[in-house]
Nucleic acid binder design. Structure first.
Lengths: 233, 233
DNA sequence: ATAATAGTGTCTTTTAGACAATATCAC
DNA sequence: GTGATATTGTCTAAAAGACACTATTAT
C-alpha cells in the first residue's frame, strides 16, 4: 500500500475516535444529544458525545458503547449507521485525531446519563442545536447527520425507528413533519404508507387520543427500502 | 471526550490509510482499478489502490493524491466522495489500520500508471473483479463502492461523470445500463432525462455514429439531485 | 350538538412504461 | 432501397396531490 517505503511507526501517531449524532423525538420535535465538555480543549462548549477507539475494539462496538454509556439504553432497538469520517489535521489541537461519526435514530429516550467526565448531557431541539457553536467540527458533523436523516427517511423505512414499537399513523407522520420541517396531508400520507408493502403492519388495536377518534396502531414491517420513495415536496 | 482519563499516546498507535474504488466506463462496461500487492501482507494479491495518510495531510487530499498517482489524471473532472471507513482490529496483520475508503467516478481513463511500489495496475471489469479474492477487506469495500454507485445514479446526476464533457443520450443510457446491469427503453430514458430540468444541456451539435442516425450531444447541467429519481428495477 | 382527530373516497395532474411511428445517417 | 440508431408521439397504468366526506371519540 505504501507508495514509498513509509513506516507509520516513525511518525507521531494518529488517534481514532467515534462521535455520535443521536437523534430522538421528544414532544413532537427532533432533538439531539449534546453535552458540555468537561476539559480542554473547548472546555465548557457543547459537543457531541464520543470517545476514543481502544486498540482492540472495532469501530461499531466503540460507537455502541458510547451510545449505551450516554443513553443508558440497550442498543437493540436503536438504529446506528456510519455517517462519515472527519480528519482535518488541526481539528483537535492536542494531536492528530481522525473521528468516525455515527448516526443513531431512536424513539423517545429518557434523560441522558451524566458520567464523571462529561457534564450536563441533555436533549436539545435541532433548531436550537444548529445555532450553537459546538466544539471541534461537531457543528459540521451535526448538520451532516441531520441531512442524512432527512434523506434516509425518504428512501427507507427508518422513520419508524423514531417511534415506539407500536405507533399510530399520526405519530409516524409527525416524525416526517419534524425531520423535514413541513406539514404533510394526513389522508395522502396514510394511503402512501399503507400501500407500500411491508412498511407497517397493523396490530389490530387502537389507542385513545387526547382528543378525537382513537387511532389504529401499527408495528414496523419487514421492508427496509421504499420503492418508490416518499417525496420531500 | 475521554470517558476515563485515557492517553492515546500510551497505546500502540493507529495508522490511517485511504483506499480508493475508482470506477470508469470502458467499452460499455464498468471497470475498477486494481493492482497487485508488491509486498507482504497479501503479496501478489489484487487490491485497491491506497496509501497512508501523512501527518499533515487531510483525508481528501490524501485520496486525491492516490487518485492522481495511479491514474495520472488531474483530479478536476473526477468525482470523488467518501464511501465509508473500515477498522476491524485485524484487517491488517501488521498493526491497527483504519482505512477511509473513497469512491471515484470518472470517464474513460487511460491505462493506469505503474509506480515502483505497485505492480500491474489495470482496469478490471466489475463482474470479474467481484469474483477475485482481494487483499485485506477490499472485497467488501469494492462491493460497498459499487452498490453506492448504483444508488447514487438513481438520485443524483452523477452518471454524467462517467461520460466525457460532451456525450450522447445513448452514451448516458449506456452508463445506467452498465452500472445497473439492465437494459432501459431508449425513448422513455430520453424523455426522462430531458424533462428533468438542468440535468443535461444540449450543445446544439451532433455526432456521427458507427451506424444509424447521428446523435445530438449534451453537456452536464447544473442540477445535482434528481427529483424524482430514476427508477431501477 | 360541537369540536377534534382518524380514516375513506374521488377527482385531477404528473410520471412511468409499452411501443408504434418517423428521422437521418451508411451502405 | 435496407439496416441501423436516434428521436418523437401516443396510449395506458400507476402514483401523487388536493380536498370533500364519513367515522368515532370527549365534552
Amino acid at each position: 500500500m505504501p507508495k514509498k517505503p513509509y513506516d507509520p511507526r516513525a511518525f507521531p501517531p494518529f488517534a481514532v475516535t467515534v462521535d455520535l449524532v443521536i437523534l430522538t423525538m421528544r414532544e413532537g420535535q427532533l432533538h439531539v444529544l449534546l453535552l458540555d465538555r468537561a476539559a480542554a480543549p473547548f472546555k465548557g462548549r457543547p459537543a457531541l458525545p464520543g470517545g476514543f477507539v481502544r486498540p482492540t475494539k472495532n469501530l461499531l462496538t466503540s460507537a455502541q458503547e458510547v451510545l449505551a454509556a450516554k443513553t443508558g439504553v440497550s442498543i437493540a432497538p436503536i438504529h446506528l449507521e456510519q455517517l462519515a469520517t472527519y480528519g482535518e489535521p488541526k481539528r483537535d489541537p492536542r494531536m492528530r485525531v481522525v473521528s468516525v461519526a455515527w448516526l443513531a435514530l431512536a424513539a423517545n429516550l429518557p434523560e441522558p446519563i451524566a458520567d464523571p467526565e462529561t457534564t450536563n448531557p441533555r436533549w436539545v431541539p435541532i433548531d436550537e442545536a444548529s445555532q450553537l457553536r459546538l466544539a471541534f467540527d461537531h457543528g459540521q458533523i451535526l448538520s451532516d447527520g441531520v441531512e442524512r436523516a432527512r434523506s434516509r427517511i425518504e428512501y427507507t423505512t427508518l422513520a419508524t425507528h423514531f417511534c415506539d414499537d407500536e405507533f399510530t399513523m399520526s405519530e409516524l407522520r409527525g416524525v416526517y413533519e419534524a425531520v423535514w420541517g413541513q406539514v404533510l396531508d394526513p389522508a395522502n400520507f396514510d394511503r402512501k404508507i399503507r400501500t407500500t408493502v411491508d412498511f407497517v403492519v397493523p396490530t389490530g388495536d387502537s389507542r385513545k387520543q387526547l382528543k378525537g377518534r382513537p387511532a389504529r396502531t401499527y408495528k414496523r414491517g419487514p421492508a427496509k427500502d421504499l420503492q418508490p420513495p416518499i417525496r420531500r415536496s
